[in-house]
Design a protein around this nucleic acid. Structure first.
Lengths: 344, 344
DNA sequence: CGAACGGCGGAAAGAGTTTTCCACCAGGGG
DNA sequence: CCCCTGGTGGAAAACTCTTTCCGCCGTTCG
């Protein structure tokens, strides 16, 4: 019946053994089966083309081989790098990755988590920065609690403050170190492409940058801080607004690389030369963007590694009582998009 | 027992109805349930926090809500763009995407397909070019036949010749059109970054380009055709070899954008200016690479759309007897990386 | 030499749904 | 007044495995 699928029972019958024995030979590992029967079963299974029904196994074992991966947008190289690490780690363990994309909708994130729960996913990696809004964070925390309460494991990338293991880049220090480097080049007037106001990651990078400026006694003109989408086009748009309003900055810091890319495009379109007219720096060191010219000065994050590490955390058996946090520091990578400000 | 999960039976008992009724209210749609009981059931389900067990449903219904997506490398923007389209289409249907990465190993591709079969995936999208090798293609075709024979559906992106629906870019014509444009600019001596010798996509683009040259009476110096990996680093390396051997070409065509990116980097490192010293063109129009400078002349493929379309094909109910092929044509996009050859 | 034991095979009880069939009830036509 | 019909609820089989428990056999210890 079952649309042509061979069942374990058929294999057992073909081999002349019981269901239990067939199961023990082909899947279960707990108990030994005698050489003779073992061979008969494997031969039958092979001959009939048996393939275990994963759903039935999940149901019977009450644990699946699924690992969830939730990202905002898989086409964004930031997330696809993380995804690459996650899949590598999961596939190493013989697990299967379920990919969900939120499109940056908190509601969708909850739905996905619930779907994964209904599939009894063994673990979930949640990538993508949280907003600072109380309400959605609380609901997400609830959903996470339910998930872990049911025996699932969760790890987050870049989302501190949730009740789960977390791999979190040191955004503040990375941005601060970058700021110090730029100050060292001689810059004093900065413009900031700050991203969305409510995005945690954006805010942390901003804060770190700002703190370093303050420490150096540098004021930041509020008109030089412009908010916009966390995307390439957001960077482009923000930069146009900045230029339209007129700016005295000699250096522009975009809180991520894709925004910086948009900024460079906008500057180019405006006939400005980087770094001669304006220095530009980003954050993340997206691999695909390493070939931009001029090369983008940025803060390198080991994105694939972060994905791998998150997956490892989520899959580790030693369920620590307290959520662990792995902090990863960024490394300032100096390229040609930044230079000393031209005199004047 | 079941690690805290609420079962349908508990809901039924709580609502004072039978299992069948509860199932009909909460999941099945075939039959009507009276208003009173319906409300009681939904109320109980909500109160107890019921969430259906997807594995049990898959088992009982004998069809799952999983859609497989197999790519070579999710960090490659080519694949992540396609993946973005596939996930969008799948999520629109309320389905869940299972992501598998092959690392370009044919063996791994077979394993993944088998895993997806064991999960009773409803459909699979297979992205990534095939090699021209008979043996692996045959085995893949076998596996695909088994899959579809069991009621699954498969669609391929960019892999003609398999027994499945296919979305295939018109690589030959795209490359030919690009060649004609370049010839129109005045180029006569071309160098080709040809990618791996055994990769179907690479070969088709090569052939199309070559055909257009021949049609224009242009000879291609075999020493100007260099093979290498289909990656950014492959492009870099191939270009270095080309330069080391010395070349008289005025225009370099890389069979995909990421190789072209590597080529531009290598040229830059060699102190050559694009397009003054050498024009460069690619293929794909990867979104993330649109901000390179100089802008890369290339052939645009609607990658996300191709992923969506493949998913739609794989999910369409009207299982046509014969595999369908959707051909998508590329559009030459002219940017600054190509120019007329400098006199001399 | 009897009893305890260790190893291995099988029967059967789940795991959580869906779905088929049957039963019941009210209403309408003969 | 009886029978058939249409609508609704329930009992139970099915889906495919895993795993517990039980029984059998041949050893080995006391």
């Amino acid at each position: 019946m079952g649309s042509g699928y061979v069942t374990l029972e058929q294999v057992a019958r073909h081999a002349g053994v019981s269901l239990a024995t067939a199961s023990r030979v082909l899947n279960g590992s707990t108990r030994q089966v005698g050489r003779t029967l073992r061979d008969r079963v494997t031969a039958s299974a092979h001959e009939l083309g048996y393939l275990a029904n994963a759903s039935a196994q999940t149901l019977a074992r009450n644990t699946s081989s699924l690992v969830g991966l939730i990202v905002h947008d898989i086409a964004d190289p930031y997330f696809s790098s993380i995804a690459s690490g996650v899949t590598r780690a999961a596939e190493d363990e013989g697990l299967v990755v379920v990919l969900g994309t939120t499109g940056r909708t908190p509601q969708r994130e909850l739905e996905l988590l619930s779907t994964l729960r209904s599939h009894r996913a063994r673990a979930v990696v949640l990538a993508g920065s949280r907003t600072v809004e109380e309400e959605t964070t609380r609901r997400l925390a609830d959903e996470i609690a339910t998930f872990t309460g049911r025996g699932g494991r969760i790890a987050c990338v870049s989302q501190e403050g949730l009740p789960a293991d977390t791999v979190v880049p040191d955004n503040r220090n990375g941005a601060a170190e970058l700021a110090r480097h730029l100050i060292g080049l001689g810059h004093r007037r900065f413009a900031l492409l700050a991203g969305p106001t409510n995005l945690r990651t954006a805010r942390d990078r901003l804060d770190g940058f700002h703190a370093a400026l303050s420490a150096a006694g540098i004021e930041l003109d509020p008109r030089n801080v412009v908010h916009g989408a966390f995307t390439r086009d957001g960077g482009y748009e923000s930069t146009r607004r900045l230029l339209a309003a007129g700016t005295d900055a000699t250096c522009l810091f975009a809180v991520n690389d894709v925004m910086a890319t948009g900024a460079m495009a906008a500057l180019r379109d405006a006939g400005l030369h980087v770094p001669r007219d304006l220095s530009v720096a980003g954050f993340d060191d997206i691999p695909t963007l390493r070939d931009l010219t001029p090369g983008l000065t940025t803060v390198r994050l080991p994105l694939e590694w972060m994905g791998e590490e998150a997956a490892r955390l989520a899959l580790s058996e030693d369920a620590a009582e307290e959520p662990q946090t792995v902090s990863v520091s960024g490394e300032v990578v100096v390229r040609e998009s930044t230079a000393a400000p031209t005199a004047g």
